[in-house]
Design a binder for these strands. Structure first.
Lengths: 239, 239
DNA sequence: TTGTTTAATTGGTCATGTCCAGTGTTGGTA
DNA sequence: TACCAACACTGGACATGACCAATTAAACAA
């Protein structure tokens, strides 16, 4: 099962195997004990524990001292769940998600974005978000040029951009910073989306980086106050 | 330095020591290497690594392969940082935080809160939040009665409620769910805080549970759109 | 001087082994 | 039957030791 000649660390390989078995429904409820994994995959307990701990941190597994390790009943939404898919958020509200590409072009960045990202130029992508065909917000994305030119080769309508980044461009997102504030829509958006004057917005600014802390994206999104909320589930182990 | 007869795990003790030295400014920039900690505190490297990893997960430290471990310049706000202390959030905005108890009493819960928490009765605490003596929002807390009656024995002005829960009542917070939405202030709050009509609010609903998934608190907070933002920094390791 | 090799240091990975601390079962005793 | 002690699991906490991989600076060669 595990490939010792692979450059990928054993505990990562094992983690992926466990994760896969959970997704496939092979593991439900209690999973094998650490010592069972040792025997089955011929690795040390420290390797097993590290694999499991990664999944615990991600909220996929839960450990109970003296009992065992279990698949989380209600997996904690990790940041990917929150950040990447507005699509998921919309689905959780019981509505049909949608997105429509408005425009995309190469542009100079504003001083504000430049200060945040260090990018002098960026590829700009603007999309409108829908829930049950009702426009609920506008997303403005700014990518480093190399990434942007690759992205626009795909159909950006209805696509999940984070999915494209990760699964098609092979970019591994690693950390994010999100600021949520209140405000009003830009005039150009308000007119375009035919929203009544004074419609307030939830504004989300996101900065996404990869493992090397390289900027992958800067995003500023405006959502209709009355139609959109952010839901954040987090957990943490204490000493 | 480390107490072997203490029931507290060594890596936790070490973690606390490192954390303290960071707070005291003894550690800035690069901290000693793992092997140096081994020698100084006479513990194994696995113990050192576990202590350090805890702090890395909390965003206090950053590790650079081949270089060393460093105090995070801009520590990642973990959920405690976000959830527990509005105080911290306000301080990060460069303002002086404050809180004022408005009222507290035992009450029946609304159907909405009952559905969310399963509590038929709850102890209600309402506080106003200040930044530089300017009111920025209102927090409504609902606690299970046992917890509420203990809480009100303390001075709830300017206190950090999460701090009271954890460090004085000995309640270990374990997970939280937070929903952020936009809306308007309640009339009673708007009048009380002398806010202009139409001032919009960022609304945060929080449900906090302990390790056993028991409800510790339900909170609904209203913050002024123009004076308050949520900042969320998250990171995750990928396979 | 400039570029390259070497060595030392750091964190990353993994194995092996020991003991402790919860949890549940099982079997015997009152 | 009801209770309790022993035992067999589970994960938690360490120690020790080995080797790998990234980084950097010092020594060396062109």
């Amino acid at each position: 099962m595990l490939d010792y000649n692979n450059s990928i660390a054993l505990h990562i390989q094992l983690k992926n195997i466990i994760e896969k078995k959970i997704e496939e429904g092979i593991f439900t409820g209690q999973i094998p004990s650490e010592r069972q994994f040792m025997e089955e995959y011929h690795v040390s307990r420290s390797t097993v524990r590290e694999a499991i701990n990664l999944l615990v941190r991600e909220g996929v597994l839960e450990k109970k001292h003296g009992k065992g390790t279990f698949v989380s009943l209600k997996p904690i939404q990790d940041w990917l769940g929150n950040l990447s898919s507005t699509t998921d958020t919309i689905m959780q509200m019981g509505k049909k998600p949608g997105a429509q590409l408005v425009t995309h072009y190469l542009t100079e960045t504003t001083p504000y974005i430049q200060e945040k990202t260090g990018l002098k130029d960026a590829y700009f992508i603007k999309r409108i978000r829908f829930a049950d065909d009702m426009p609920i917000g506008v997303e403005r994305h700014y990518y480093p040029i190399e990434i942007g030119v690759k992205l626009i080769k795909y159909d950006l309508n209805d696509a999940t951009l984070y999915d494209l980044l990760e699964n098609h461009l092979g970019i591994r997102l690693a950390e994010a910073e999100q600021t949520i504030s209140g405000g009003i829509f830009l005039d150009e958006d308000r007119e375009f989306m035919k929203m009544p004057n004074g419609t307030n917005a939830l504004i989300a600014e996101r900065i996404i980086r990869d493992r090397n802390r390289e900027i992958i994206e800067f995003e500023k999104a405006f959502y209709r106050n009355d139609l959109y909320t952010f839901k954040i589930n987090l957990s943490r182990k204490f000493g």
